[in-house]
C-alpha cells in the first residue's frame, strides 16, 4: 500500500493560484470554498521587503485531530494516508472544523446547487448542459472510492455537511495526481508515495530541508514544504481572497 504525501517546493511557487482554480473546477466546489488556498505573504519593511507564496491544501495528517472528534466516523484516515470525508455519513456538527488547526474544512451553509456563482437554470444553458449544476459537473465524483467504497470524492454535495480537500481521491485511485499538482505551471507541487524511494516526493525530501505546518502540535501532516520557511507573525497576508458568500 502506498503512503501518499504532497511536497510543495516554495522556491518554485509564483503564487499564481492556478492550483486553486484547478481544484475548484475538478472537484466542483461551491462558491467561497477553497480546498486549496495560496497565501501571498509580505515580510519586513520597505525597502527590505520579502514576498513569498504558500499553497495550503488539507494536511492529510497521520494524527488527524478532525477524525478523532468526528462522532459518526464520517471523517477517517485511509490506509494510504488520505484523510477522507464520507458525506453520506456527515451530520454537519462541525467538530472537525473546530479541531483542525489548519482551517481547511468548509461547511456547506447553502444548498450547493444554489451556490455555484451564477444561475445555471436558464433554459438555453440547460439545453446544452442537460441540467448539470455546475455546468462542468464532473461525473467521476459520483463514484464510491476506497476499499470501503464510500462516497468521498468532490464537493458541492448537500447543505449542512463538511467538505475539504480529498487529495483528489477520484484521480489518485486512477493513477493520476491531484488536480492542483497536475496543473501547477511551475511544477512546485508534487505528489507521490513516500515508501517509494524513487518517487519525486522522496527524492525532494532527501535533497532539500523540509518543514511541516504547525509540526509542534503533533498532527504529523502528510504535506511537506521545501525551499522556504514557515509563516510567522511577521508574515503579513496580501491580496487575500475576499469571498462573497
Amino acid at each position: 500500500m502506498a503512503r501518499y504525501a504532497m511536497v510543495i517546493d516554495l522556491d518554485r511557487c509564483t503564487g499564481c493560484r492556478a492550483c486553486m482554480m484547478a481544484c475548484k473546477v475538478e472537484n466542483n466546489t461551491p462558491q467561497a470554498n477553497f480546498w486549496m488556498y495560496v497565501f501571498r505573504f509580505e515580510e519586513g519593511h520597505y525597502p527590505n521587503t520579502h514576498i513569498w507564496f504558500m499553497p495550503r491544501p488539507c494536511m492529510h495528517c497521520d494524527n488527524p485531530p478532525c477524525a478523532k472528534v468526528c462522532p459518526v466516523g464520517a471523517r477517517y484516515k485511509r490506509v494510504d494516508g488520505l484523510v477522507a470525508t464520507d458525506w453520506d455519513r456527515c451530520i454537519g456538527c462541525r467538530y472537525c472544523e473546530v479541531a483542525c488547526p489548519y482551517g481547511v474544512n468548509y461547511f456547506n451553509w447553502k444548498k450547493p446547487s444554489k451556490n455555484y456563482y451564477l444561475d445555471w437554470q436558464a433554459k438555453d444553458v440547460q439545453e446544452v448542459t442537460g441540467g448539470a449544476v455546475p455546468p462542468y459537473r464532473n461525473p467521476d465524483l459520483d463514484q464510491p472510492y476506497g476499499a470501503e467504497r464510500r462516497r468521498t470524492a468532490g464537493g458541492g454535495r448537500l447543505k449542512g455537511v463538511i467538505e475539504k480537500c480529498t487529495f483528489c481521491v477520484h484521480r489518485v485511485e486512477r493513477g493520476q495526481k491531484p488536480a492542483c499538482v497536475q496543473n501547477c505551471p511551475l511544477f512546485a507541487l508534487h505528489f507521490g508515495d513516500l515508501d517509494d524511494p524513487n518517487s519525486t516526493v522522496s527524492q525532494l525530501l532527501r535533497r532539500k530541508p523540509s518543514f511541516r505546518l504547525l509540526e509542534e502540535l503533533g498532527t504529523e501532516p502528510r504535506v511537506y514544504y521545501v525551499g522556504g520557511h514557515p509563516p510567522s507573525s511577521e508574515s503579513h497576508q496580501i491580496e487575500e481572497v475576499r469571498v462573497r458568500v
Partner: peptide, 18 residues
Amino acid sequence: GTLCPKGVAQIMALYDPN
C-alpha cells in the same frame, strides 16, 4: 500540460448565461 488560473476558469465563461 498546465494552465494559469484564467485558463482553468474560462470553463465558466463558456456556459455563462450572461
